Simulated assay, not measured.
Amino acid sequence: MTDLTPDATLDATGLNCPEPVMMLHQHIRDLAPGGLLKVIATDPSTRRDIPKFCVFLDHELVQQQEDAGTYLYWIRKKLA
């Protein structure tokens, strides 16, 4: 089982596109390479935007979950 203990958490609850991804960009920049960031969001567009962000910038989307309108993402920053 993968350890999903994050090194940092971004709470983007209540924010709408494009704010969650803009904040994600800043938080991932501040994270050490290989670090794990947990993102909490309520904007349904993050289901599309966050996976695309990870693919485009070569970060690993380790896991994503949805629970009653709250979207959770665990993102591992690329090593280099």
Rank of each mutant, 00 (worst) to 15 (best):
M1T: 06
T2E: 13
T2P: 14
L4P: 07
T5W: 04
T5F: 11
P6C: 10
D7N: 15
D7I: 09
D7W: 06
A8K: 12
A8W: 05
T9P: 00
L10T: 04
D11I: 02
D11G: 00
D11S: 04
A12E: 01
A12K: 03
T13A: 15
T13W: 02
G14I: 09
N16K: 09
E19G: 00
E19C: 05
P20Y: 05
V21H: 02
V21P: 00
V21Q: 09
M22Y: 03
M22F: 04
M22T: 11
M23G: 00
L24R: 01
L24G: 02
H25G: 10
H25I: 11
H27D: 07
H27A: 12
H27S: 10
I28V: 14
R29E: 13
D30F: 10
D30V: 00
D30Q: 14
D30W: 03
L31S: 05
L31W: 06
A32V: 07
A32Q: 09
P33T: 05
P33W: 07
P33N: 06
G35A: 08
L36S: 08
L36N: 12
L36G: 07
L36F: 08
L36T: 11
L37K: 03
L37H: 05
K38V: 00
V39M: 15
V39A: 12
I40K: 04
A41R: 05
A41C: 14
A41W: 08
A41P: 02
T42D: 06
T42V: 02
T42K: 06
D43C: 14
P44L: 05
S45I: 09
T46Y: 01
R47L: 15
R47V: 15
R47W: 01
D49F: 04
D49T: 05
D49L: 13
I50D: 04
I50G: 00
P51S: 03
P51Q: 08
F53I: 04
F53T: 02
C54P: 06
V55F: 14
V55K: 12
V55H: 11
F56T: 15
F56W: 12
F56D: 13
D58K: 14
E60N: 11
V62A: 14
V62T: 15
V62D: 11
Q64R: 13
Q65M: 12
E66R: 07
A68G: 03
G69C: 13
G69W: 07
G69M: 06
T70R: 09
T70W: 01
Y71T: 10
L72E: 08
L72C: 04
Y73G: 09
K77G: 11
K77M: 08
K77F: 04
L79P: 01
